[in-house]
Design a protein around this nucleic acid. Structure first.
Lengths: 156, 156
DNA sequence: AAGTTTGTTCAGTAAATACTGAACAAACTT
DNA sequence: AAGTTTGTTCAGTATTTACTGAACAAACTT
């Protein structure tokens, strides 16, 4: 049994993350950028990103902007270099969770707003909407809990 | 202060759920159907669905198929009636969570597959990918935990 | 100052997805 | 059997989103 070359492993990984990102509603190229940065671990230049992923500079520009806005990567500079460099943000996963919990809480809030408008007579509607709101609320709370303890992986 | 009519509250709720569903990657009409069924709580006919939501029968057909496949609604019948009726499935939220955890576990699995291919020399790459895989793994495990106890909302 | 490198913007295109509505088949009604 | 009701399918259209690449401005180099 002989081993797959590391570059091919890397390329496959990058594509996988592109697809995962797409499934999560993110543009595929942004996912590829993120995957590349996870794999490499070190800063890569704007031009190298475009060359490695074989996409236009425009796509790199919008992808890194999105990832920066979401706090998943950071733009850095190298002394004597004119290009922008990019690397993973400090705690990208905590930031991702934060985004998810915010979204879940927003959903819960929307439903709760409807509940608040209901006349006191429609108790059954209220019950059903509460169950729905609780669903989002529990998800949000659970995820927040699980990831807010900074660096504990074990369950005690 | 006078109250908003119940029908308007209902219509707004349905639209809200349509948007939430869309944000989660589902067709908007499917979200509206789900929202309507949550609000009403009782079975509604195929034709009434189309009429209430003001969409084509084709759209209802594909929406209810999607929701059925996902186990979120069930198709029922009324004695003496030829139309199909639809109502919420028994535990739609548990089913939703199941779907989410499956998806997260799949992501973790994809990353783990890459980790398994790495040569033993690239320990730093391994570390980063493990952190990434753990992220998905923790999310999946956490959500499963939180929702698997059938009917306990309190934290003890 | 003329020319280069670098990142952004934006108009245009490509691609994916959602929705409609007509055609259809199956089951029922008369 | 002819006609109706009912749900599905599918071709066509609409809509949304992603991506490209040329034009551009800013910063740098000569």
């Amino acid at each position: 049994m002989h081993h797959e070359p590391i570059n091919s492993i890397r390329a496959e990984f990058i594509e996988k993350i592109g697809l995962i990102a797409q499934a999560e509603g993110m543009p595929r190229i942004a996912g590829r950028v993120f995957g590349l940065l996870v794999f490499d671990g070190q800063a890569i230049s704007f031009a190298d990103l475009a060359a490695t992923l074989q996409v236009s500079r425009g796509s790199i520009s919008s992808s890194v902007r999105l990832l920066e806005e979401r706090g998943l990567i950071k733009r850095t500079a190298k002394p004597g270099e004119r290009q922008d460099y990019f690397q993973l943000a400090d705690n990208p996963y905590a930031t991702m969770i934060d985004r998810v919990t915010r979204s879940l809480s927003r959903a819960k809030g929307e439903i709760s707003a409807t509940i608040a408008k209901l006349p006191t007579t429609s108790t059954d509607v209220c019950d059903r909407l509460c169950a729905y709101a609780d669903f989002y609320g529990t998800m949000a709370a659970t995820l927040q809990d699980a990831f807010e303890a900074p660096d504990s992986d074990q369950d005690a």
